[in-house]
Design a protein around this nucleic acid. Structure first.
Length: 443
DNA sequence: CTGGGGAAGGGGCCC
DNA sequence: GGGGCCCCTTCCCCA
């Protein structure tokens, strides 16, 4: 006989122990704030902790300490609460950073929920409901309290709460069962420099990599990493700038769209009402910024700049791109030396007047004169012995040619038939010293 | 410190 | 809807 509530009560007990600091044998330091937890629970919930704790499992007498600087204490608190309760408190402000942190911690379930959260924002039917609910809820939420969406684990939530949403006006919290949700906080587009935020995040990534090295851990790479970029910045903005409902989102879009009056149309589109009759073109609005595009596919593409998703890794150097055409461009310019121009003197070169030079995974052309000056004509390799480095086939984003750090060496770059390239086999293990002189192409 | 060039990345749009 | 091209802006590196 199976008692279905046992799991829930067990986790409830563990959560209670965590709150009372009972039997906690793991300290997690996040930007100076200490979280206490149980190794067993963390081990079972996160691939990152699984690796960390399995390596330190021999020293069970000492509490394990992990340090993170890649995400905020608030973000980790959301994740830790999920680990101990099965409830994920997602808001429009934290979803990107939670997804980024979950990616680092290798918590695929959390990533999936975050993706669903974001994707659902594009669902017009949900938006229409949002619009309806936000209109009806406006009085309730007029106090400025931010509403949250709580994702509950299916099995436990069936026991603990009904599978329908309801609004708690006191806490401004919207508790959801199953995968449905309706309220989605939104921020106005920030005018801050996106690149600065990305750089900031990259610095955080650097710091977490240092931590990984410090702990002797490999960097998480099994799951796609999602950058927290613009939203990370917006989350720190004063809440007074945050519209409290979809209605205000709509108002913002109206203001930002040169006072054109908008309404939701078919599909996840926004259409100028005063142009609807004579201009049947639909518009798709980004839920995270004021950007509006004409096609849903363009919006999908645009969303990657918010999520940081980079599903297209370069087969030659491992650098990941958000778009296939960017990857293609990168591959051509960096690894195929398609430009028939001497990189040094900029003169046009042919296969007779110049050669392709290989530096690590980079390839470029030099004319014979510049080659002689540089004294690097010894790199030519027999064309006939080289296999071809081809651009990966379509639809093979992550599987076939997901180039990891581990298999980056022994890259074989060869002649492209269309460009008559000189073949160069690269064995990074042998050319490691030379490779270090060439700055990596990953920013 | 500054300007130029290369590379990356984002948007529009065509096929 | 995806792929790809073009254009533009931004960032970084280097002379």
């Amino acid at each position: 006989m199976e008692i279905s509530s046992h799991q829930f009560h067990l986790l409830q007990q563990l959560n209670e122990q965590r709150r009372q600091d009972l039997f906690c044998d793991c300290n997690i330091l996040v930007e100076g704030k200490v979280f206490k937890a149980h190794r067993n629970v963390l081990f079972a919930s996160s691939g990152y902790f699984k690796m960390l704790l399995s390596q330190s499992s021999k020293e069970t007498s000492q509490p394990t300490t992990a340090t993170f600087q890649a995400f905020s204490p608030d973000t980790f608190s959301v994740i830790l609460d999920f680990v101990y309760s099965g409830k994920l408190s997602l808001t429009g402000q934290n979803v990107i950073e939670v997804m980024s942190a979950a990616s680092y911690l290798q918590m695929t379930d959390v990533i999936s929920v975050c993706k669903t959260f974001i994707k659902s924002s594009l669902d017009i039917s949900e938006k229409e409901k949002d619009r309806y609910f936000s209109l009806s809820d406006k009085d309730v939420n007029s106090n400025g309290v931010e509403r949250l969406c709580l994702y509950g684990g299916a099995s436990w939530r069936e026991e603990s709460s009904p599978p329908h949403s309801h609004l708690n006006p006191d806490q401004g919290t919207c508790i959801m069962g199953g995968n449905t949700w309706s309220n989605f906080s939104y921020y106005p587009a920030s005018q801050r420099n996106t690149q600065q935020q990305l750089s900031k995040h990259d610095q955080r990534q650097d710091s977490i990599k240092k931590n990984s090295r410090h702990l002797g851990l490999p960097e998480p790479s099994d799951v796609p990493h999602y950058k927290s970029s613009k939203l990370e910045d917006r989350a720190s903005e004063p809440t007074s700038h945050i519209p409290q409902s979809e209605e205000e989102v709509q108002i913002d879009s109206e203001v930002d769209s040169a006072q054109v009056e908008y309404q939701y149309g078919q599909g996840s589109a926004v259409m100028p009402r005063n142009l609807a009759d004579d201009l049947p073109r639909m518009r798709f609005k980004c839920p995270f910024c004021t950007h509006v595009v004409k096609r849903k596919a363009d919006l999908k593409r645009h969303l990657r700049c918010h999520t940081g998703e980079r599903p297209y890794p370069c087969a030659a150097c491992g650098k990941r791109f958000s778009r296939l055409d960017h990857l293609s461009s990168h591959f051509r310019t960096i690894h195929q030396a398609c430009k028939p121009i001497c990189r040094k003197c900029k003169r046009h070169v042919t296969e007779l007047t110049g050669q392709v030079v290989q530096e690590g995974t980079r390839r470029y052309r030099l004319c014979n004169e510049c080659l002689a000056e540089a004294g690097i004509d010894s790199i030519r390799i027999d064309l006939d012995t080289e296999p071809t480095l081809e651009f990966p086939p379509e639809g093979d984003k992550d599987s076939g040619w997901n180039y990891s750090e581990d298999n980056r060496s022994d890259v074989e770059i060869v002649e492209d038939g269309s460009t008559d390239l000189v073949i160069q086999q690269v064995d990074d293990s042998e050319d490691e010293a030379e490779e270090k002189e060439i700055k990596p192409n990953i920013r």
